[in-house]
Amino acid sequence: MKTARQAARQRRRRRRLILGSTVAVTAAGVIAYLVMGLLPDRKEETGPATSARVETTRVTAAPTSQPRASTPTATGTPSATATPRPTASETTAPARPSATATPQSPRTASTTATPAGRIRPGTTYTGVATAYEAEDGNGACLFGPSPDLMIAAMNATDYETSRACGAYVLVRAANGKSITVRITNECPLPCAPGQLDLSQEAFAELADLEAGRIPITWQLLSPETSDTISIRYKTGSSPYWCGIQAIGHRNPVARLEVKTEGGWRQLPRTEYNYFLSADGSGCGNSIRITDIYGERLTVTGIALRPDVVQSTGLQFVRH
């Protein structure tokens, strides 16, 4: 049997063991608490990150309320989100074929609207006739001297930047007399719209020169002629700049084009009746001329020879 002293010793050992275990457990708990306190809170960490990603998405996403219609910027250019709209040039068929167009015969009918300017076929104009000394027949149209002085100068308004050059006009006086003249010159202000300044030779066919000024009516004429159209390059023309003129045409010329690498190019017309290629494109190449009735003639084989009249062998039809 255990003695009282042994029993007391065992009780003291158990108390020490229990106390040690308690202290150990308590220490472990404190350590665990400290460790957990030092660890980062993952829930709080993921919260801001998720919020940042959502915000980034909002910044980069296209606004759903932005209109689709084109909104011009300060320079007139549509914004990046604008819906493209075709321009007038995209919705209208080109007036001239491209360089790859099928070759055409020298004579074709224009598919565009009538190119007539102020002077229109079938229209009668009212005005007055005056007279001037035509000398050798040359004038603002720069056709050169003419052996036929049945010519006239068109008032500046109806001259229309030389569109009237070469037109044949039937002139009737109030006394019933009439004459056909060709427009070779311009009558500057104070010549009024409708006024024709006839050569003295032409005026004399209608009235005495002493009359000075007579009332007339006139209209465009498409005459009978055996002449064919000629082409002349202006003095100083080269592959880098050229002026081109049509001569001897039955009907007024409304448009002149040259063949370039990019297709047919319409040249601007000057008041002195030449069509200019300021950069030389098309100079020496094929030429296409259109009259006010819309007939189009293609001219080939014309060399770039300044101030030389070269026949085409072609002529517009009579109307």
Rank of each mutant, 00 (worst) to 15 (best):
S222Q: 02
T100N: 13
D41Y: 05
L304I: 01
R107A: 12
A8R: 03
S51I: 07
T87Q: 10
V309W: 00
Q219A: 11
T75C: 06
H319E: 10
T100H: 05
I287L: 08
E210F: 15
G144N: 00
A140Q: 06
N155V: 08
G144S: 01
Q6L: 00
A204S: 14
S105C: 06
A278I: 14
D41V: 10
A207L: 07
S79H: 10
R42M: 10
P94Q: 06
L256R: 15
I151F: 08
A32D: 05
S222G: 08
I292D: 02
A113M: 12
A62V: 15
N155E: 10
A8Y: 01
G137D: 07
A131T: 12
V35S: 10
A7L: 01
E90L: 03
A49Q: 11
E295K: 01
W218F: 13
T225A: 06
E45M: 14
D158N: 13
A27L: 11
R107Q: 11
L304V: 05
R58I: 15
S230D: 07
P190T: 00
A8K: 09
A303T: 00
S230K: 05
A131K: 07
P239I: 00
T298F: 13
P63K: 09
R85L: 15
R172N: 13
V181T: 10
L206N: 06
A207E: 10
P84A: 08
G301K: 02
T111V: 14
